[in-house]
Simulated scan of single mutants.
Amino acid sequence: MVDVLGHLGMALVWLAPAWFFVDSKKVAATAIGTGFWFGMLPDVDLVLQRLPGIHHHGVFHTVLFVTLLALVIGPIVGWLLTKLLGDSEWFVRDSKLGAKIGLIVVWVAGIAHLFADMLSAPDVSTRIEPLWPLVDGPIVMMDVLWYKSFWATTALFILGVAANLIAWYLADGRRSSTATA
């Protein structure tokens, strides 16, 4: 498990392709800027672990949980963004499209968290079982990042910012070339 900054960085890496799927750079920036915070979504178990049966890297660190929470929270996030920013250039006016964008960014950021934990959890932390209940037990763990490594965490965040800057630049070039065609 990387630290908070690393999870946010991994969410930024996974959300960077949004620059190529959204026609407006401002809408993409809003979606990514809102969505990457949900890179901490599975760690809600740290708050709830006082309840019986809940532990860190348990059911909250599964694709099932991330999907269910994204289905609930994502459309609300999209709806709120539509209500707050729909009359501006910073988000879409269509609340159904806004709900879909919210769902996607919350889900992608949550899944990115699971992947970051798969890269780092096996060394000293509880292994995650991301495909539970379909697969009982951990799947392939890569153990390439040291647990709470300052350097790995910082590098992931820098990588996430860099990926978005590069995607922003490349998407801008793609928009220019399609506008002239």
Rank of each mutant, 00 (worst) to 15 (best):
A99R: 11
W107K: 00
L71S: 10
M141Q: 14
G86I: 08
L69W: 13
R93D: 12
K96G: 05
G78H: 06
I111V: 14
E129N: 10
A112R: 06
H113Y: 08
E89S: 09
L84R: 04
G74C: 05
V105L: 15
E129R: 08
L71K: 04
V63S: 02
D136I: 14
V124N: 12
G137H: 11
I111T: 03
I101D: 01
R93A: 15
I73Q: 01
L119F: 09
A70H: 04
L103C: 09
V66T: 08
I101P: 02
D123I: 13
V106Q: 05
S125M: 15
F115V: 15
L68P: 01
V106N: 03
G102W: 03
P138T: 12
A109Y: 07
E89W: 06
W132T: 04
A99K: 12
S125N: 13
W146P: 00
L81M: 10
P122A: 10
G102I: 03
R93F: 12
K100W: 15
P122E: 09
L119S: 02
D94H: 02
T82Q: 07
E89F: 06
G137C: 12
F115E: 05
L134Q: 00
W90T: 00
S125H: 15
L97A: 10
L119A: 05
M141A: 11
V144F: 13
G102Q: 02
D136A: 11
T67H: 08
V105Q: 04
P138N: 10
P75C: 04
W107G: 00
G86C: 07
W90Q: 01
V140C: 05
M142A: 09
M118H: 06
L68A: 13
L97E: 06
V72L: 15
L103K: 07
W90Y: 15
A70I: 07
V124K: 14
F115Q: 05
I111W: 11
R93K: 15
V144W: 15
